[in-house]
Every structure is written in C-alpha cells, then in structure tokens.
Amino acid sequence: MEPVNLFDLATRQSQWLAVRQTAIAGNVANANTPGYLAHDVEPFERVLERTTVSLNATQQGHLGFGASEAAFRTRAQEFDGAVMPSKNTVVMETELMKAGEVRRAFELNTAIVKAFHGMLLAVSKG
C-alpha cells in the first residue's frame, strides 16, 4: 500500500470540484438551448481509481510526492425524466442540487486541509 499525501489528495478533489462546477454552470447557462444535453463529470471515486501515486525526483537529491495527471472526463448525463419538446435535458432543480453538493464538498475539503495544516504547525512548533 502506498502512502497518501493529504494535501495532494485535497488538491485533486478541488480541481475535480472546479471542473464539476464548470459543467453545472454550463448546464444552467444552456437551460433554454434547444437540443442541449446536460453534462456532468465522472465521480471522484473513479478519478482516484485511475490515479497512481508515486514519488518523483524533482532535483538531484530531492524527492517530491506527485501523482499522475488524470483528466476529468465530462459526459452527457443519463436522463430518465420527460424530455422537453426542444430536446433539452437540463433540469434546473437537479443542477441546483448538484451546485449545493459542490459547495458543501469545497467547504469540507477546505476544513480538512485547514485542520491538517494546523496539526502540522503544532507538531513543527513543538
């Protein structure tokens, strides 16, 4: 089992959340566009499954902790509801709920990083 760097993991999740928020904003912006299919990003769990964590030497004598870049893939959302006559699949209520999930995830991510940073400071100060 490989060690996990919390700051690297938090950065990856923040990047993923930013991409998801962009997809949600695009859906909201195109809510009245005929034929527009709502998009979402793949779940963060799948991104983590594809990510390999490894040590990278950045300079001779130094070791850095890095992860391979995984692209966050957007895809058309699966839609089970009734399609509008314009063939648009954006449901505003769903998009607003997803935006709330992203906001809560950003807040949790920030709180965890802040707590971990505080622990590191406490340990380093002695």
Rank of each mutant, 00 (worst) to 15 (best):
V83C: 04
H62S: 14
G64H: 10
L121K: 12
A76P: 15
A38N: 07
K114F: 00
V19K: 10
L6R: 03
A82L: 03
W16R: 04
T74C: 02
A99L: 13
A82H: 04
Q15W: 01
A25T: 15
D80Q: 11
H62I: 09
A25G: 13
E78F: 09
R104T: 15
Q60T: 15
F106G: 03
Q59G: 14
N88F: 00
N30H: 05
L17G: 02
L55M: 09
N56Q: 12
E42V: 14
M119Y: 02
N109P: 08
V41Y: 02
A38M: 06
S68G: 08
F72R: 04
A29H: 11
R46G: 05
T110N: 12
P34D: 07
K87V: 05
A71W: 00
M92P: 06
R75Q: 14
H117E: 13
L37C: 03
S14E: 09
V113A: 13
F72E: 09
E2K: 09
S54M: 04
P3A: 07
L108N: 10
G61P: 10
N27V: 01
A105C: 04
A23S: 15
G81N: 12
A99W: 05
V4P: 02
T52K: 08
G35E: 06
G100K: 15
R12H: 12
L96T: 09
L63M: 13
N109T: 10
V91N: 00
R12N: 13
G118F: 02
T22Q: 14
E2A: 10
T58E: 14
N88S: 02
K114L: 05
M92L: 15
A76G: 11
S86V: 08
D80M: 10
A70D: 07
R75H: 12
D8V: 10
R20G: 05
M92Y: 03
K125A: 06
E69D: 08
S68Y: 04
A23I: 13
V113K: 04
Q21D: 13
L17W: 05
H39W: 09
A105P: 05
V113I: 06
E93C: 00
D80R: 13
I24C: 13
T11F: 00
N30K: 03
V4C: 01
A99E: 06
A76L: 07
T89P: 00
P34M: 05
P43I: 11
T89H: 00
F72N: 08
D8M: 09
A23V: 11
R73Q: 12
R46Y: 02
K125Y: 01
R20N: 09
L63K: 07
T11S: 10
G100T: 15
D40F: 02
I24F: 09
K87W: 06
L120F: 06
A105S: 15
R104F: 13
L6A: 07
F72V: 15
F44G: 08
V123S: 05
T89E: 00
T58W: 01
A105F: 02
P3V: 07
N56R: 12
L63G: 06
V19H: 08
A57D: 14
V53L: 04
N5W: 00
G126R: 08
L63R: 11
M97N: 06
